[in-house]
């Protein structure tokens, strides 16, 4: 069975790009804002969550914190994909509960391997298969 990856991202072009890169190998779920993202995540229990930070209504920090507070998703890897790429941004995001951090603009060739590098075993092996 394919690994499931859940993308929370408000920018349609970015969503398109990420989905395009991932859907060949993985099952992809999409959400364009925080509240629906949290609801879908609880329902689908994805293996990995990709999270944008600048989002309307609820930002990525708040979403990460909410996901971590939910019992079922406590261990789910959350990888931030964001344009916040200045000194301190990474630390802030990791402190909010993210497992990994990929800065925009993404490199389409490298994106999947970057993502896998942040996953714990046995997800890492499964994702690489």
């Amino acid at each position: 069975m394919k690994l499931s990856i859940f993308i929370i991202e408000d920018n349609e072009q970015n969503m398109y790009l990420l989905t395009y890169l991932l859907e060949e190998k993985y099952t992809v779920y999409q959400a364009f804002n925080g509240p629906s993202g949290i609801a879908i995540a609880k329902e689908k229990r994805p293996d990995v969550i990709l999270l944008d930070i600048q989002l309307p209504e609820m930002d990525g920090y708040a979403i990460a914190a909410a996901l971590r507070a939910s019992g079922d998703l406590m261990e789910t890897p959350i990888i931030a994909v964001t344009s916040y790429a200045m000194v301190g941004d990474r630390e802030r995001i990791m402190a909010a509960g993210a497992t990994g951090y990929i800065e925009k603009p993404i490199d389409p060739d490298m994106f999947i391997s970057q993502m896998i590098s942040f996953l714990p075993e046995p997800l890492k092996t499964k994702a690489s298969a």
């Binding site: 920018n11 072009q13 970015n14 790009l17 600048q54 344009s83 916040y84 790429a85 200045m86 800065e103 925009k104 603009p105 993404i106 490199d107 389409p108």
Partner: peptide, 13 residues
């Protein structure tokens, strides 16, 4: 940084 990266993501991607 942030404002430039966002459109660049589209361009490069």
């Amino acid at each position: 940084s942030h404002e430039v990266r966002t459109p660049l993501n589209g361009i490069l991607g």
